[in-house]
Design a binder for these strands. Sequence first.
DNA 1: CTAAAATGTAAAATGCACTTTACATTTATA
DNA 2: TATAAATGTAAAGTGCATTTTACATTTTAG
Lengths: 66, 66
Amino acid sequence: MENRIKEYRKQHKITQDELAKAVDVTRQTIISLENGKFDASLKLAHRLAHYFGISIEELFIFEEEA
Amino acid sequence: MENRIKEYRKQHKITQDELAKAVDVTRQTIISLENGKFDASLKLAHRLAHYFGISIEELFIFEEEA
DNA sequence: CTAAAATGTAAAATGCACTTTACATTTATA
DNA sequence: TATAAATGTAAAGTGCATTTTACATTTTAG
């Protein structure tokens, strides 16, 4: 699953470290999410979307299908 | 984290087994989610919300705050 | 150009989402 | 009221989200 975290983070002009602290995870987690290593948990997805002031559906790209 | 799965499932008049099959998980997973045993993954949250025709934010209740 | 800041990689450890199987209890219906 | 359908409990196993630590590379700024 893809996401627009890097895109929104740059719009907000903050570093990975700052975003990590803002949503209370490690920098590694932000790096892994931005680089598609794995998906966020539902809770983290919510904290990220809330931080950016958008919906989870706007921040994450769910490909439809089975 | 709480959710409105049972509520929406009943509105749709389907059983746990039918919902489980619709979103491609086991019945155990639906039971565990409805009874608050654990949270859904982001992907499953999306499939459930999509099935009910609502947003993830409408289906799950995120209490604010760290 | 050089130092500092930002980003990335790697790998081991932990916790939790989800599965599987089997059985028990509750609710609906003939 | 007896049976089936629906819901629930339990417990062990798997995979992945997240942490931690340490170091390497890239980008930015003086």
